[in-house]
Design a binder for these strands. Structure first.
Length: 217
DNA sequence: CACCAGGCAAGTA
DNA sequence: TACTTGCATGGT
């Protein structure tokens, strides 16, 4: 297992190269992006983020002061806009109530404690919390998403109903606990998933990992 | 036209 | 605990 996961990484890196994740000019922007990208294509998230930038709202204080209604209008391109406006607000409420509105204070927490706090916020689940931990707070935490599960299932490394924690545990146990590695590895899995390892994709044979399992779901 | 995209929470049994 | 449904725009 250890060998295969390390081999996959080298294979993917050789195929696709560096992915330069996470695009964002600040830790706060990465957090906002992590919430907006839930079940959503990144292109649509960029439109939403650009709208916030144009209104000079892409900082904690301004976003905290803006009404949920105004937020919803601006982030509309990212989909689920009413829901996500609330989720941004619930994050900001915790940030201001408990950490003086400063990401720096929040990120002073230990990794387990920070994860716990993030998961306690309405609208932040395991994947979003881990994305924030890895890509905003630079902690060596592995992010598991739908692509990760599909790819590992097709490699017959997990059952199709494997839990988030089980899949995450595979990577944690078999790879060097390294933020840079986890950053690049997750991004490469997303790249492979988008490009080749999709549901019932006829291009499956072109998978650089040598995929054999053809169906998923 | 159908299907997908870097999930999560709330409701039901 | 395990399953279902609502949320919603934009690309292919």
């Amino acid at each position: 297992m250890k060998v295969r996961l390390n081999y996959f990484y080298r294979k993917l890196y050789a195929q696709f190269g560096r992915q330069h994740w996470w695009p964002g000019e600040s830790h706060f922007e990465v957090v906002v992006g992590a919430i907006l990208t839930q079940n959503t294509n990144w292109n649509n998230v960029e439109r939403a983020i650009n709208n916030l930038k144009q209104e000079n709202l892409l900082n904690p204080r301004a976003l905290y002061r803006a009404s949920a209604k105004r937020l919803a209008l601006l982030i509309k391109p990212s989909g689920y806009y009413n829901l996500k406006a609330k989720r941004l607000k619930s994050f900001l409420t915790v940030l201001f109530n408990d950490y003086q509105g400063k990401i720096k204070n929040l990120f002073n927490l230990s990794t387990p404690r920070l994860r716990q706090v993030l998961l306690g916020i309405n609208g932040i689940g395991p994947e979003t919390a881990d994305s924030i931990l890895l890509y905003a707070a630079a902690r060596p935490v592995f992010v598991v998403d739908a692509y990760t599960k599909r790819i590992l299932f097709r490699q017959r490394l997990i059952k199709r109903d494997a839990s988030y924690g089980q899949v995450q545990g595979l990577f944690i146990k078999n790879l060097k606990r390294d933020t840079r590695l986890f950053n690049e590895y997750h991004a490469l899995l997303v790249r492979l998933g988008k490009e080749i390892c999709r549901k019932n994709n006829p291009k499956c044979k072109l998978c650089p990992l040598g995929c054999r399992q053809k169906s998923f779901k």
